[in-house]
Design a protein around this nucleic acid. Structure first.
Lengths: 200, 200
DNA sequence: TTTCAAATGTTGACGGCGTTCACATTAGCC
DNA sequence: GGCTAATGTGAACGCCGTCAACATTTGAAA
């Protein structure tokens, strides 16, 4: 509740808008996330947000950036510094659970096109990328993290989306966890076996 | 160009709307896909579509269903009946290429929430699921396809989305293909090795 | 302290959207 | 040939994103 960066008339409307957007997202899903609704919730006119964000997409990007930070936090909470396949699997499960618990936020983060410009979003994404590569490097120092990390990310990310869309049945959170864990284990044992070429 | 099912005033407006929607999608992306624009292109009033689709989402679902059929076609073209890891990898590459070549359609198919009701969409999805399970069963008769098939799907699907969103660099189509192929090979060799329990 | 420019917020408007309802037209069946 | 149901139209509603003109407030220069 501590006031943040730029506080003028309203007192940091910029971040108040992001918070309002997150609330609306949780309450009513993507459909509820309109610029006007956000402004209304922040107690401000419909045009006010344009003093802080170029357009709707810019605000959505800011929301997505918060999502990336929260995802990173969540992964870190699952395990601060994984160094075994089991621990890595825990992180993977946390990733999928994040997607299932906050589906609208996750869809905003990944489900729509985003400007490749150097905005908050790209930075936040890069953080996730590095975090993951670091983990893989620690778990498999003899492997090639730049090849393995994306594969693991893709596996986990794909599970998240397929569960989210109902393409794969997700009867219970634990069932989801089991499935993800098993897949990770399979991919990892492949690396250990097949990664012989990394001996050089 | 042969006229289809129900032809009344317009002569199969129902499918004309889907075609118009697909055109708009290719030309202008998801943003261009409005019910009014679709009606305009079909040369019909804004209210006419409601005689054939309950709402916008229903039309979008119909478009997605076409997408699923085209995806299945594309996979089949990559290899009619894969039975080796290499052939399966070809199918996987075709999946990702479909996503990159028709990003808007792919996003409509997977990127937004869909009603779990028993509509065209669910049926078309099921077709993909079965097709994949069949392939896996043929490639690895001694494995458990119900566990392996989703893992492969997730891996491929995740790659598709991450490339699509620019989270992973996709410098050239062949680079994408190589990455996907390598990941598939890794996962598959894991199955061959780790799948010992399937000997029983 | 006064003053002034820049930052911030408001009002009202525009066009586009999804959707509905009352109405017109047409198609096919008796 | 005429009736009913199916199909298309037109006008309207409220919501949306966005903009331009205007009002207010702020912080600092004078």
């Amino acid at each position: 509740m501590s006031p943040a960066k730029t506080a003028y008339h309203h007192g940091d409307l910029r971040s108040a808008l992001v918070n309002a957007a997150l609330e609306l997202l949780e309450e009513g899903g993507e459909t509820a996330l309109s610029l006007r609704a956000v402004a209304r919730r922040a107690g401000v006119s419909a045009a006010a947000p344009y003093r802080h964000y170029e357009d709707r997409e810019a605000l959505v990007s800011a929301v997505a950036a918060v999502g990336y930070r929260e995802l990173a936090e969540r992964l870190g909470a699952a395990h601060p510094a994984p160094s075994t396949p089991e621990q890595l699997a825990d992180v993977a499960v946390a990733y999928v659970q994040f997607a299932l618990e906050r589906p609208s936020l996750f869809r905003i983060m990944f489900g729509e096109p985003c400007n490749r410009d150097n905005d908050e979003r790209v930075v936040a994404t890069e953080a996730v990328t590095l975090y993951l590569r670091e983990i893989v490097a620690r778990c498999f120092p003899q492997s090639n993290p730049e090849a393995l990390a994306p594969a693991i990310w893709a596996l986990v990310h794909g599970f998240a989306f397929l569960f989210l869309d109902g393409k794969l049945d997700a009867p219970s959170p634990s069932a989801v966890a089991n499935r993800v864990t098993a897949a990770i284990q399979a991919l990892l044992s492949a690396t250990i076996h097949g990664g012989r070429s990394a001996e050089n």
